[in-house]
Nucleic acid binder design. Structure first.
Lengths: 139, 139
DNA sequence: GGCTAACTGAGCCACTGTCTCAGTTGCAAC
DNA sequence: GTTGCAACTGAGACAGTGGCTCAGTTAGCC
């Protein structure tokens, strides 16, 4: 089963319609690599309206099927997400993006909550650096 | 010495001019509370052009005197920054913002770097939750 | 006081995302 | 297979945030 098909099933299971534009967008997103801007999707699916692209991205985010990434310059990118909770590691040179998760990070958050009395509801964690390939190329 | 004066010294030390608009903006930002939107600054300093507000915010960010905070909804806010490296804890209800720093977090980042071979150059970490006062008020 | 590079203001542009509203369509029920 | 209708869509206007340009101004060194 392709990623697109898996997501179609998720949509159906949650009671959302499986429309032509949605199928087209899933297809396009699967082909756009590990992350993409909203505009990339708009350009890659000229038959689908811009509003629909943004609506669909938002819907997919709500379904935890797509996640949003804040790039180093503050721009936002999107990414077809794996199921588990994860964070992003981005290469500032070649834009490669990797997921990672860390129990230690969850411990840090718990500690912050304990120390401040806040109840934590969400967090955002992105790490920017240079991947091994880019280090080798320019070292 | 006020925060604004300290920043003026930083500007001078780095070879930047101390102009009227810059002084006005520093004054305004000091009075805007713990965090503010670019638009708040624009409104609070009607004599200063919009472009100058954004240019100055950017300059102050480069000088590590102002830091950018990504709010839960993706909007960006600014904040006069303390000297040390820190992260932000935001109350989603009353918008209170607290700084915190964590050696454990630095350890998490080091571990990610080790595991992936990336050299880490920067990161972004924001935690969203509810502050003790808001918990008490609505519990 | 004069000089000049740094800075500024106005206004237009770009990008990202939202909203509205009339028209279309998936799909469940018949 | 047809129908009904809520969900969905497209076009285009709008909003918020920030950048760019360029002519004019000014801080601060001499």
């Amino acid at each position: 089963m392709t990623t697109a098909e898996a997501i179609e099933q998720t949509l159906a299971r949650r009671g959302y319609r499986l429309t032509g534009p949605r199928r087209a967008l899933l297809e396009v997103m699967s082909g756009l690599g590990d992350h993409f801007a909203a505009d990339d999707v708009v350009n890659a699916a000229p038959a689908v309206g811009r509003a629909t692209v943004f609506r669909t991205l938002k819907l997919l985010q709500d379904l935890d099927v797509v996640c949003q990434v804040v790039l180093e310059d503050g721009a936002t990118a999107y990414r077809l997400a794996p199921d588990e909770h994860h964070h992003h590691l981005l290469c500032v040179e070649c834009s490669e993006m990797r997921d990672f998760s860390s129990d230690d990070l969850e411990a840090v958050i718990a500690e912050v909550a304990r120390r401040t009395g806040f109840t934590v509801e969400a967090h955002r964690f992105e790490v920017y650096g240079r991947c091994p390939a880019c280090q080798a190329r320019t070292s």
